[in-house]
Amino acid sequence: MEFFLQNVVNALQWGSFYALIALGYSMVYGVLLLFNFAHGDIFMVGAYVGFFVATGLLLLVSSLGLVSMPGWVVLVLVILVAMFITAFVGVAVERIGYRPLRQAPRASAAITGLMIGIIFETGNLALLGARRLSFPELIETTTYTIGGVTVTNKRIMIVAVSLLLMFALHQFVQRTKWGMAMRAMAYDFAVVPLMGVPLNSIAALTFGLGSALAAAAGILFGVAYPVLSPYMGIVVGWKAFVAAILGGRGSILGAALAGFLLGFIEIFVATIFPSTLRDLIAFSIILLILVFRPHGFFGEAHTSRLRL
């Protein structure tokens, strides 16, 4: 039982990353009907931006001799600043990479996305070199043992912050005018702009939000696995993409659920079977779900709709 609960805790943390990254894929696909294949690399960029913000902030604190700022305040600041900066990276990707291709076939946009991803990876390699960076330890690890299950304060924080961000995004999409515009756009891509909703602003907003969430995921990833590399976003990005498909087009709840589900499958497969079978079994399960629900958990067919 303890063994089982310990793995539930492990899976919650691992699933948080998939869920946060999947949200970005899902939103962009929902609104613009395109898969932003650079999203995994935006996650990487977010982690690096977080690294530099954190290092800079720590330097500033120590050089100004400010009354010692508690670690969690620094962490919150780092997350907010990095989310803000990375949002602009996402907006720039949309503006430069995708907007000129909005009328082009979807395959062109997909190829562009892959290319942007490669530019981020190799650009990072060229600028910072191949050396791994070690994410600074902002909060000290405290370990709690509750009934044989070991939990650290970091793990609790990671899952809590992820859930909080998902809730905030849900509220934004459901309760604000901008969120309503996004939902409307997802409903009908062609007619909504005719009603005076600015397509370009909504597209930029969608990319900005998705990238900000990816940045938050990147920083939390850095806190949990403090070795940053230029290629850290590729595999995680692919898997989050699959989670987004599984969740259903544009569904926030679906992407979050699917992300956690993928985390649970991966951890439990590695627990029961040799780890080499992990991806095989995980993707077989997803394939099976998609056979019965081809549009994912909460998706719906969109073939009948007009498209630009």
């Binding site: 063994f3 310990q6 793995n7 492990n10 943390q13 691992w14 990833f221 949990a224 696995y225 070795v227 290629y231 850290m232 595999v235 991966e266 951890i267 439990f268 590695a270 627990t271 040799p274 780890s275 080499t276 992990r278």
Partner: peptide, 20 residues
């Protein structure tokens, strides 16, 4: 006798097994 695959970053499942 636990294994993982190159580029994995999370070893919590394997380490939980080892601890157990």
């Amino acid at each position: 006798y636990e294994s993982f695959t190159t580029n994995d970053t999370d070893f919590s499942a394997q380490l939980t097994k080892i601890k157990d």
